[in-house]
Design a protein around this nucleic acid. Sequence first.
DNA 1: GCTATCTCTTTAACCGTTATCATCTCCGAC
DNA 2: GTCGGAGATGATAACGGTTAAAGAGATAGC
Lengths: 348, 348
Amino acid sequence: MITVKEIAKMCDVSPSTVSNILNGKNNMTAETKEKVLACIEATGYRPNYFAQGMRRQNNKTICIIAEEICQFSTPQIVESIMMYCEKNGYRTIFINLGMYNKWDNKGIKVGSPDLIEENTKPAFLEAQAIRADGVIYVAAHGRALDVVPENYDIPVIFAYGFSKDNKYKSIVIDDEESSRVLVEYLISMGHKKIGVVTGTKENYHTIERLKGFKNALKAHDIKYDPQNVINGDWQRESGYNAAKELIKKDITAIWCMNDVMALGAYDYLIENNIKIGEDISVIGFDDREIAAYAYPKLTTSAIMLDDIGILSAKMIINEIEDSSYRKEKVAPTRVVCKFIERNSVKKI
Amino acid sequence: MITVKEIAKMCDVSPSTVSNILNGKNNMTAETKEKVLACIEATGYRPNYFAQGMRRQNNKTICIIAEEICQFSTPQIVESIMMYCEKNGYRTIFINLGMYNKWDNKGIKVGSPDLIEENTKPAFLEAQAIRADGVIYVAAHGRALDVVPENYDIPVIFAYGFSKDNKYKSIVIDDEESSRVLVEYLISMGHKKIGVVTGTKENYHTIERLKGFKNALKAHDIKYDPQNVINGDWQRESGYNAAKELIKKDITAIWCMNDVMALGAYDYLIENNIKIGEDISVIGFDDREIAAYAYPKLTTSAIMLDDIGILSAKMIINEIEDSSYRKEKVAPTRVVCKFIERNSVKKI
DNA sequence: GCTATCTCTTTAACCGTTATCATCTCCGAC
DNA sequence: GTCGGAGATGATAACGGTTAAAGAGATAGC
């Protein structure tokens, strides 16, 4: 591989002149500049990243650690982080933990999801080996995380999940407020008897979204009826089963706490010839691709993935460049979801 | 940041001893080993990646350049590449071109898709700066690509797309054979009058899939009727419009060349109370998530994304480690899709 | 003609790690 | 008692770039 020395020799100048030209230092004759740049262009020379990184101690690199690139929310968050960082002078290094998949020791997929938080340590150490200026940890779902090694001296920001004890800054979705807005909409459409299909019990999203549900009811003096709340597990089938139960009750709308369960509810309703958006209203959460492709198109609440990414990138750059900002302890920044009205809710 | 020298000083040994211990060289007393390792553990020391990369000229890193991480096929291909490489002793560096999205110069999304092949050059040069041992280019859709700079001296493998003039090895899906299998299934279910909704004209996938369609018809002496083939553009609405046309004709099944258009067809059929999987059969291609979540679940052909990723990783490692293999010119490796039977086709 | 000033270029040190070679210690053999 | 050899550890240089400081050459001022 070609080096500065070779370029220098070819151009009859010293290596430092080449380096200075590349880095816009000093002033050299237009002639020299032109000659050297032409040579670089012709040979396709690129400074060795490693040599550069070693000499300049700051290497302007942000490490993105994602729990699972195949989770629907991850690619968009990662893309927006990468773009924001790149445009602001930072390189990014991406590490995927692949927590939802199991691979054998040759790197062949052998199935079965497997999310183990201990697996994260090597990734954080890797970030250290790269001498990253900062780390953004992109979680696959919101929860309190305790994954940063002790005495870790690189700034860390959590995206989508949050740090245990708020040790590090984080950006999460505002489940409570987003749910309130969504339920508020149902009420504005005349629905007062609303069935709910929750996510897994004890889950952070479930708890927060239920809070939002209750807030909306309270604001309109509607009594909260636990009878109409059925526990799901985020999966399609639990939506199906819950719809079967709820349809027997005196309700006009079903809110599933994610789109996947909402489409499970669709399954049951379509199967039983109950017209969605006519006989009964259905509403979801997440705004996954499947929501827009369902029939009728599912009304839901969209997670602002780009905003989460850009915000976390902004924050990490802030922490890197302003050490006083780094010291501030703050509660997670909440990003409210965007309500998306489609065709699955009828005004009554 | 702590260095070998400091570790060495703390342990009263020389830097080379520390290095040797970390790299499993020579034989040193268990006592020394233990002392040094304990110190490393306590301080959280990690060798500087850049210094390492510079000293050992081979740095065991594969660069993955993806056209668009948000394209449905990309994350899974990338994940499998990363896992395979990692388990086989190679680090990966990921570069996303973000070709389907536009960002302003601050890194804020400003909309409108924009796929420009010229944007790829900086990414290839970056791979060179990193002194990557190999590059895997993950395309967002299959087509002939001419994106590698002149005189590029790092091995390159194309995944999902292929290299113009077969200059580089590539892995693509076998559109022709996969389509043949799919149509063969329709025929085995008694369908002889099949409507087709194609992708954009001149598109590689469209052409190849149509070949497969004709192959299957020919094998059963069914006449190909261009009247029943409608040009789509891969988008949902074109599936809707095509279904409207096709339903007027004398057909029993509709094959849309992707799932998105198939669900567009669903829209029209459901709207007009034509029962899918009863009155008419529908079949797709791709096996995106939306296919499994439709009602009825869409029969389709699944792209083997993990296989594509693992194969390309295997190939690049082969090229890196065996220079004679690198010299061989070969046609694109074709990976046949897996037929997925669901509920959208009825036996007649 | 000599020195001062300015502009451009070169020299040399340095970043952190590791391969290579040298050294040192210990022990047994002759 | 000396020598050889093995095992453990240390010294040194090199990887490829950047940068501060020194050097060289041209021009201007006295």
